[in-house]
Nucleic acid binder design. Structure first.
Lengths: 239, 239
DNA sequence: GAGTGGTCTAGACCACGAG
DNA sequence: TCGTGGTCTAGACCACTCA
């Protein structure tokens, strides 16, 4: 049984995908739409909430509902061996980085395998496409391993594969969840739009954790790709 | 500025995590809770919606709101080299499988690299812990490669690593999104609880796609783990 | 200040579940 | 049948944005 909000959401979705409402454009106000569909504002808002969860609409308090600009999909390449953590794009992403020295908070000591309040270098990365934020990364490196020259915008920070004593292992834990309020604000996404969260821990040959990275990617415009190749000898070496 | 629904959600969350409301228990009816907190039912429901998105509460139409039983977290191990797609658990998971022969629908031909309407064997897997569904998997295998003895409940179906001509590559694409209505129903999760979606494509040495698997895991009780080890010789061979 | 979305109310009626 | 959650209304008032 189709509820009104679904019917309205379907109609609006069609008008958006068919180009009747263009990318970046402001939709009519909720009051106008409610009148047009002869529903109450509450019902209309719940229809918009559906589209918001799909990443089609962005609500901006005080100014309106906007058709979300469909951004280039980004793919995070796992395995730690890529040239850069972010794959290359035809349109280069603009990156901003902020480096801080902190003392390891409790939730990081286990991850980095360091004593509490060890000195760390934290790098906060944000990638943008145009004006829209695209992804978020917190990277933590033990202070004595941090590069003296802070990395610039070309690639995402610490790139352990090339710069460092050889890594022995990169472990990436991927999960799906809703964004925290802070993440939703920074990424300018709906609190109801799922994000992909990647926790990457890189270990060197000595077993020391060289880097921990916490990445947050909006679910509608990013995914992660992991490729495993097998040795095609008779010894199918793995593990 | 804390809204009422957040205050209520915080309070209920605390009562759940502190054990005042126990796992599996039914909460007071929405009308009762609304009275207790002196808010309208709409406000109370929006508070419950927050908890639902966190996976703390399960709503069952017609019978009540229940504290969701915190299930064992499952970890999907990537890389295709694990003994079974699902790692072992102290409490074994119950698996149910349903095998069907179908003709490749359009959205699969590209994935499997086969002509339209090729014969495929589809295996639909559901894992359960107790009575609660835990994960969902659609596995597609070209019909002539399908094992004659349908796989049983111990491990997830087609396990290419051991049974088959050696694989050359396993590619896993991971994304985060909200569940479809069907997935939400099957997994008995809230439509607002993010799921982790894994598309795994296994290729053999001849470049033929041997298996495609579409996995859906509830975000609050599953994550995926990818481990990459590097050769610790002087030749840091990768790529 | 005018217009927008955000929160909330106090109801009504419908659909589902279990006894 | 009865109690539950699901949908919806027609407002009110508040908070934010922008000219």
């Amino acid at each position: 049984m189709p509820s009104r909000r679904h019917v309205i959401a379907d109609d609006l979705r069609h008008q958006i995908t068919s180009g009747h409402f263009k990318a970046g454009e402001r939709l009519p106000s909720e009051a106008q739409l409610a009148t047009r569909y002869t529903v109450s504002t509450a019902t209309l808002r719940s229809a918009l909430a559906l589209l918001q969860g799909e990443g089609l609409v962005e609500k901006i308090h005080g100014s309106g509902n906007f058709v979300r600009r469909p951004l280039r999909k980004i793919t995070y390449t796992g395995g730690g061996g890529a040239q850069s953590t972010w794959t290359a794009f035809s349109t280069p992403l603009r990156m901003t980085a902020r480096t801080t020295n902190i003392e390891a908070p409790s939730h990081l000591t286990a991850l980095l395998n360091v004593p509490p309040r060890s000195p760390l270098t934290e790098v906060l990365f944000t990638s943008h496409e145009g004006k829209t934020p695209h992804s978020l990364a917190h990277i933590y490196v033990p202070h004595d391993l941090a590069p003296s020259t802070p990395p610039l915008g070309e690639q995402i920070a610490v790139n352990p594969a090339d710069l460092r004593p050889p890594l022995s292992e990169v472990q990436e834990r991927v999960s799906a969840r809703l964004p925290t309020q802070e993440e939703a604000t920074t990424l300018r996404i709906s609190p109801s739009l799922a994000v992909l969260s990647v926790t990457r821990v890189s270990t060197d040959a000595a077993g020391r954790v060289v880097e921990a990275a916490l990445l947050v990617l909006p679910g509608d415009r990013a995914d992660a790709l992991f490729t495993t190749r097998f040795v095609t000898d008779e010894r199918s070496s793995k593990e």
